[in-house]
């Protein structure tokens, strides 16, 4: 991407913030929905905002309020939340190699959502090592703040917002697939990676359509990784993007 050198000259924090702006299109409408659902499930505005601030994981937050509203046992709520978030286990190790030494990194992992991981994994290798802490902090902080802001907005005025501007909630979330597509595009540079990615995308799509939204990401990714290893001998090594 042509932003490689500009991050060296710009303030990395602001560069990260700027590059995370596309995420807001996906975050804010979903956060508004969460705020609305949470208040309707009986949580107060403050409790709703605290859930978004502390847990900060979309799908598991929806599950958390839905299960509690349904009267599910609390131990089951905790276990289900952890199971849904289990995919996060593989994110940090994948970006660890790009992180310069700093005592802040473990705490900054609170902001390592699906989208921030995808953004960081793609962008960090292309920027100067000394810029990475500032860049990540800027990107993760903007995403976190937008999630909290969207939640508060949804909790306070979600019903009115979705009634007045229903189209906004329909259109803005397309920012997420568009962002993922841009992050993936440079990888379609070898037959091996093209095959792996197409299989993974198709499987994730099929799993979700079949009614397995939470299993779709880890299952499809595992299948994609298996396809990569099986086809490596047939199609040869991938591009420079390997590893």
């Amino acid at each position: 991407m042509n932003t490689t050198n500009t991050i060296k000259t710009r303030n990395p924090f602001w560069a990260g913030t700027q590059e995370a702006i596309p995420l807001l299109g996906g975050y804010i409408p979903v956060a508004i929905s969460f705020g609305l659902v949470s208040v309707q499930s009986g949580f107060s505005v403050l409790e709703t905002v605290l859930i978004s601030t502390l847990v900060y994981a979309g799908a598991s937050q929806f599950l958390f309020v839905a299960m509690i509203a349904a009267g599910a046992p609390l131990w089951l709520v905790a276990i289900m939340t952890m199971l849904i978030n289990a995919r996060h286990l593989v994110y940090a190790p994948n970006i660890a190699i790009y992180l310069p030494p700093s005592k802040w990194w473990p705490w900054l992992m609170h902001g390592l959502t699906d989208q921030i991981f995808a953004l960081a994994h793609t962008r960090m290798p292309h920027m100067a090592e000394e810029s990475r802490l500032g860049w990540y902090t800027g990107a993760a902080l903007l995403a976190w703040m937008s999630w909290i802001f969207g939640t508060a907005l949804g909790a306070v005025a979600g019903e009115e917002l979705t009634t007045r501007w229903p189209l906004l909630g329909e259109v803005m979330p397309f920012a997420l697939p568009a962002l993922f597509l841009v992050l993936l595009a440079p990888r379609f540079s070898s037959r091996l990676w093209t095959l792996t990615l197409i299989v993974t995308i198709t499987l994730a799509f099929a799993f979700k359509l079949s009614g397995y939204p939470n299993a779709a990401i880890p299952m499809a990714a595992v299948c994609g990784a298996i396809v990569y290893h099986l086809m490596k001998g047939v199609l040869g090594q991938g591009s420079k993007h390997d590893g």
Binding site: A118, H121, L183, I201, L203, A204, P218, A220, V222
Partner: peptide
Amino acid sequence: PAMIAAMFG
């Protein structure tokens, strides 16, 4: 990358 592709799907 497979995780990112799955998120896209």
